[in-house]
Simulated scan of single mutants.
Amino acid sequence: MPRLLLVEDELAIADTVLYAMAADGIAADHVTLGATALAKLRADAFDVAVFDVGLPDMTGFELCREVRRFASLPILFLTARGGEIDRVVGLEIGADDYVVKPFSPRELVARVRAILRRVAPEPASQSAHIGPFQHDRAGLAVRYAGTPLALTRYEYLLLAALLARPGAVLSRERLMDDVWRDAPDTTDRTVDAHIKTLRAKLRAVRDDLDPIRTHRGLGYSLTLDA
């Protein structure tokens, strides 16, 4: 299910958008401030974002500029201003689309779906080379710098989650949902402990590399230039 972040301070509009997205199978989070949106985008992974241009604490344009410093997810603007200059500015600073209020919820969903189709990766083969890793999805196995890794079930699922989004910071909550969905008693410490054992196995192969990065208070990411 695609994940969308909606940044909109008009609650009536937000409720309409959230309902339309849910009806189309898109999971949407909602915040009303640009600062809150920045914190969520740094802490978790989203597939697309919808920004209102007129926010209480900053403009959607300013928010887009800040987001583009650390993330490349698609962004669609909602605005009451339909002038050509506003559309041009929005697109030039990195937006992918622009919808003028009032708008049809169905049209907004259709535009979001169109964006998601454009940015969707090509269907992955059963074996993928990702930096020093070779991920055999069919065999549920990973080689690191040419060496097969002896991984437990959860170590494999954890590494596979990181390999699926290299460079993205995945929160502990997101990793618990993705990896330990069948173990509801999992805690942050469980994630940290498995990261520790996974790092040890990677260092046993190449002690000069440290591809798993810790982002304090946020989560973990996999970097391929470590």
Score class of each variant (00 low, 15 high):
Ala145Gln: 13
Phe51Ile: 02
Asp29Trp: 01
Asp15Pro: 11
Arg117Tyr: 07
Leu202Ala: 01
Arg199Val: 00
Val53Ala: 12
Arg111Ile: 10
Ala161Met: 09
Ala39His: 14
Arg172Asp: 13
Ile195Trp: 02
Tyr19Pro: 06
Arg68Pro: 08
Leu41Thr: 07
Ala39Lys: 12
Ala20Thr: 08
Asp207Lys: 03
Ile212Ala: 07
Gly54Tyr: 09
Leu218Cys: 05
Arg81Pro: 08
Tyr220Arg: 03
Ala110Tyr: 06
Leu41Asp: 10
Val88Ser: 07
Thr36His: 15
Leu5Asp: 09
Ala161Asp: 11
Thr152Val: 07
Thr223Asn: 05
Ala145Trp: 14
Tyr19Cys: 08
Leu91Cys: 10
Glu10Asp: 15
Asp208Cys: 07
Met176Cys: 13
Ser127Ile: 15
Val191Phe: 00
Val142Trp: 03
Ala124Leu: 15
Asp182Asn: 08
Lys101Met: 12
Asp225Glu: 09
Phe46Gln: 09
Gly219Asp: 04
His215Phe: 00
Arg65Ser: 01
Ala226Thr: 05
Val100Asn: 04
Tyr98Ile: 05
Leu157Asp: 15
Leu198Ile: 02
Leu5Trp: 00
Val169His: 09
Ala128Pro: 05
Phe46Ser: 07
Asp185His: 13
Phe46Trp: 13
Gly83Ser: 15
Pro2Gly: 13
Phe133Asp: 10
Ala27Glu: 12
Leu116Lys: 11
Glu10Pro: 14
Gly34Tyr: 00
Val48Trp: 02
Val191Trp: 03
Ala204Met: 00
Leu116Thr: 12
Arg42Trp: 00
Asp9Gly: 06
Ala43Trp: 09
Ala193Asp: 15
Ala160Pro: 09
Leu224Ala: 05
Thr152Trp: 02
Asp208Pro: 10
Arg199Gly: 00
Arg68Trp: 01
Ala120Tyr: 00
Arg42Cys: 05
Pro132Arg: 05
Asp96Gln: 15
Gly25Phe: 03
Ser125Glu: 13
Leu224Cys: 07
Asp9Met: 05
Gly219Met: 05
Asp178Cys: 10
Ala28Pro: 08
Ala161Pro: 09
Leu170Ser: 08
Val112Arg: 04
Ala49Ser: 14
Tyr156Leu: 07
Met58Leu: 14
Asp52Ile: 06
Gln134Pro: 06
Leu163Glu: 08
Leu198Cys: 02
Ile85Asn: 14
Leu116Pro: 10
Ala37Gln: 09
Thr59Met: 04
Gly83Val: 03
Gly167Lys: 02
Leu18Gln: 14
Ser171Thr: 02
Ile26Pro: 02
Val31Ala: 03
Ala28Lys: 03
Arg69Pro: 04
Leu33Ser: 10
Arg165Asn: 12
Ile212Leu: 14
Arg174Asp: 13
Leu140Lys: 12
Gly217Cys: 03
Thr190Ile: 10
Leu151Arg: 00
Ala43Asn: 08
Ile115Cys: 14
Gly217Met: 03
Lys201Tyr: 05
